[in-house]
């Protein structure tokens, strides 16, 4: 598998806080790669490190084959980290003209094209001082993409956008990966968005990757059995801590291979099964189980 980013044991500390804690991760070329994690998980720190904005305390990484900060590699990247900010006295077009000059090789026609693609044509000659967060995000995305990068890092690209804007951004990101061959790495708190747009994800917690893989594989592994049964108490007792109550149905975290045995045990215990069906996990379930569970366990241990 060809990779665009290889990270080995990356650590970044701020005083006693370990924002990245021996992070190791390889991100394949092509497609859309999601980075998920609760606030403070290390997503933005990782992005800033990969862009050479901050120096790692330990470890190393290669980006597009070059070491962090290698000018040739950096020039093949586009990025938008957190809510982008711009000099307030400039218009949207002037911002892109300014950044185009810093990079070189971007024409005015391409700038017009990007203003149109992110929906800012009408606001092109307005000063950014009066822009909403969503408009700043759009301009930030245009700034990241106008240099035709091979790799794009987008941190919360739809933050502050309205629903149509989110939909447009999702389509743009997929189009970059599918038609332009750009590798897109994005961080987002909107898990539905990530599930819809990403091919692979890594879930971060406390500066480490706690799970990584294809979105389809991660959600498949979280499949559960939904059972309409009576009596509920008896069913819960038979299934033990694998089962939870969701309204008046029992949801059981039972692997497919063990499902028949579980149902047999219920029947033999006198439980009446009206309906049994598989429900898939979504990314939110995976995220909560990976990050929430870990957090509770550690709190308990600490307590």
């Amino acid at each position: 598998m060809e990779t665009v980013i290889d990270i080995r044991g990356l650590t970044k500390t701020y005083g006693t806080v370990r924002a990245l804690d021996g992070l190791t991760l390889s991100i394949p070329r092509g497609g859309v790669y999601g980075i998920l994690g609760p606030n403070g998980a290390g997503k933005s720190t990782l992005f800033r490190t990969l862009l050479g904005l901050i120096r790692p305390t330990e470890g190393e990484a290669t980006v597009m084959g070059g070491r962090i900060g290698d000018p040739a590699s950096m020039r093949r990247m586009g990025s938008m980290i957190e809510t982008p900010r711009f000099p307030p006295f400039m218009t949207a077009r002037q911002v892109l003209e300014w950044l185009a000059r810093a990079h070189g090789g971007v024409t005015s026609a391409e700038i017009d094209n990007w203003l149109q693609r992110v929906g800012l044509t009408e606001a092109a000659n307005r000063r950014v001082k009066g822009f909403s967060v969503g408009m700043l995000q759009r301009l930030g995305v245009a700034a990241a993409l106008m240099t035709k990068p091979d790799l794009v890092i987008l941190d919360e690209p739809t933050s502050g956008m309205d629903p149509p804007g989110i939909q447009e951004m999702r389509a743009l990101i997929r189009s970059l990966a599918d038609h332009d061959g750009v590798t897109v790495i994005l961080a987002s708190h909107q898990l539905q968005e990530v599930q819809r747009v990403c091919d692979r994800v890594a879930i971060f917690n406390k500066g480490k990757v706690i799970t990584e893989g294809k979105v389809s594989d991660l959600t498949a592994s979280g499949e559960r059995l939904r059972l309409s049964v009576t009596p509920l108490a008896k069913a819960l007792s038979v299934l033990g801590d694998r089962a939870t109550l969701d309204g008046d149905v029992v949801v059981a975290a039972v692997p497919r291979a063990e499902a028949a045995a579980a149902i047999k045990a219920l029947v033999e215990s006198g439980v009446d099964i009206e309906e049994a069906r598989w429900i898939g996990a979504d990314l939110e379930d995976v995220f909560m189980s990976e990050t929430g569970w870990t957090g509770v366990q550690e709190q308990n241990r600490a307590g």
Partner: peptide, 17 residues
């Protein structure tokens, strides 16, 4: 000091040394 004040180093520092 403009790039510190406007928080724009992140925009341009990746585009040049």
């Amino acid at each position: 000091a403009g790039d510190y004040r406007w928080e724009t180093w992140r925009l341009i520092s990746a585009r040049n040394t």
